[in-house]
């Protein structure tokens, strides 16, 4: 602003004499910008930074529910370091996140490619794909609880009906089965988000690129490999970051289905933290478990941040 000597605002400010904060606020764009930012910043501090700070602080105390604790340094962490259940939950979380994310990506991409093709009842099929995403998590978790019930499981019933098995399957009672079951439920729930987002990405790829590549001699696989996939990478990076974050911090599904059992085989860091802090009353220890998730989440975000940086081919002129 200052380099526009004849601007009316500036001469008005000059007339007002010394630049008081108020006149500056009224006349200077940067100050005004700051002013507009304040509410958003306030919200962020109040609802993000404060709870986060408080959580980290609690992890360095021996707080219990109803009793403010004292600073005890890294004692909670030292205790967790030697705690097998904690390490099991770390392993479970990594396993859960990795397997579920990889499968969600594969299935989501496959569905998106399928839905992007011309077919009958396209709109209806797209709507159907979205259903798992719309159903509240707890509701779908309860549904899965029934599906995986030892006695009433519809899967067991169907397999028996087909004559493939003659016994009950203890879906959620056996460690391996329980892990597979919760991962399956998570995939069922997470796929639509990925499929629909990738579909949106696919639809931004101009059809003439495929035509040009076809004439250049590309096979179907080469079209995907050299056109679709590279053009889709930015959106894949975004959607998979979100997916990994959500899966890593998943709580509802596990809590309704298994509560971490059997024998902690499905305990994730989030459920273990809740169990220790709220049910067990050890706020400090629970906070330490939750805080231990932060490095993992940061790593995921950093990873995608570098992946997300505008690729060279995206920068430059804005016209087509």
């Amino acid at each position: 602003m200052a380099d526009v000597p004849l601007s009316p605002t500036r001469s008005a400010a000059a007339k007002a004499g010394g630049a008081s904060a108020w006149t500056r606020l009224q006349t200077n764009r940067n100050w005004l910008g700051l002013w507009f930012m304040l509410p958003a910043a306030g919200f962020l501090i109040l609802f993000l930074a404060y709870p986060l700070g408080l959580g980290v602080w609690l992890s360095f105390t021996d707080s219990r529910i109803g009793r403010p604790g004292e600073f005890i340094g890294f004692e909670n962490y030292a205790w967790l370091w030697g705690d097998d259940v904690f390490w099991l939950s770390v392993f479970n979380t990594l396993l859960y996140t990795t397997v579920a994310s990889v499968l969600k990506f594969a299935i989501g991409l496959y569905l998106a490619l399928l839905l992007n093709r011309h077919m009958r009842f396209k709109a209806i099929i797209r709507a159907v794909v979205l259903i798992p995403f719309i159903v509240p998590t707890v509701l779908s978790a309860v549904a899965f609880w029934w599906i995986f019930d030892t006695q009433f499981s519809i899967i067991t019933w169907m397999l028996q009906g087909l004559g493939l098995i003659d016994h009950q399957i203890n879906w959620l009672g056996d460690s391996t089965m329980a892990r597979a079951s919760v991962i399956f439920a998570n995939i069922w729930r997470g796929v639509p988000f990925i499929a629909i987002t990738l579909l949106a990405g696919l639809q931004t790829v101009p059809g003439s690129l495929y035509e040009a590549a076809t004439i250049d001699g590309a096979t179907r696989w080469q079209l995907f490999r050299f056109i679709t996939y590279p053009l889709l990478t930015p959106i894949i990076a975004v959607v998979m970051t979100f997916s990994v974050l959500f899966t890593f911090t998943d709580f509802q599904l596990i809590w309704v289905l298994t509560r971490g059992g059997p024998f902690n085989a499905t305990h994730l860091m989030a459920t273990l933290s809740y169990q220790r802090a709220i049910l067990g009353g050890n706020l400090g220890e629970g906070a330490a478990i939750a805080t231990a998730m932060i490095p993992f989440l940061l790593a995921a975000i950093m990873f995608s941040w570098f992946g997300l940086q505008r690729r060279k081919w995206q920068s430059g002129g804005s016209d087509d």
């Binding site: 101009p206 003439s208 690129l209 040009a212 004439i215 056109i227 053009l231 081919w313 087509d320």
Partner: peptide, 14 residues
Amino acid sequence: IAMVFQNYALYPHM
């Protein structure tokens, strides 16, 4: 055959 399109259809990532 080779074809030149109205909108050029250049591969933006290459």
